[in-house]
Design a protein around this nucleic acid. Sequence first.
DNA 1: TTCCAGGCAATAC
DNA 2: GTATTGCATGGA
Length: 221
Amino acid sequence: MKIIEIYERLKKKYGPQGWWPISNIGYHPNDYSYPRKKSQIFEICLGCYLTQNTSWSNAQKAIDNLNKINSLTFEKIKKLSDGKFKEMIKPARYYNQKFKYLREFFAFYENKLKENNIPTREELLNLLGVGEETADSILLYAYKQPEFIVDTYTRRILIKKNLIDWKTSYQEIKDLIQKEFQDEYEKEELVNNYQEFHALLVEHAKHFYIKKPFGTGDEVL
DNA sequence: TTCCAGGCAATAC
DNA sequence: GTATTGCATGGA
């Protein structure tokens, strides 16, 4: 089966997912115009760190905490004490680590991103706490760059469909998917479709790939 | 109670 | 380069 076909079937079954959720707006299905403001770009970057190996509901609690004290922008967060910021992001798990990671990101943001610059993938990967998945998440959702995100759910589903195996590398999986999408869609459509496909894989995995054995019941594919 | 979340870095070999 | 482990909250 072609990966594009999986995408089409997921779209038909679940509909547009409206990722990445934004504070005070939430998910925004069929509206690919976000982020619209610098503060929303910043917020997505923050969320990409906070949701690492953490449920979105927990990451969102951290975002909500910051929003409640009116500190969900770079300039406002900068003014928080270390202790207060840690307290706010505590629900997002590994908060001491993520605090350290984010401090480095804020310095990078201050120096390189404040003037509407777009980070390179390499720059992001050089930051502490940013691996391939987080780098691609920031690029795809915050900066609308055509970089597909390979996560554990993507792997589980593609392994189940016998399209890859457990040792296929991140880059190989990413190339496999991007090649099919590049053949199918125009350049301007790639970002929206990458955003949608990744969100759909997560949604589908939540239904059928959480408990062992992986993939039982996903007859939709 | 146990299991699992929209990973990454440090370490060991 | 591959395998293992620490990180350390909250909901199902």
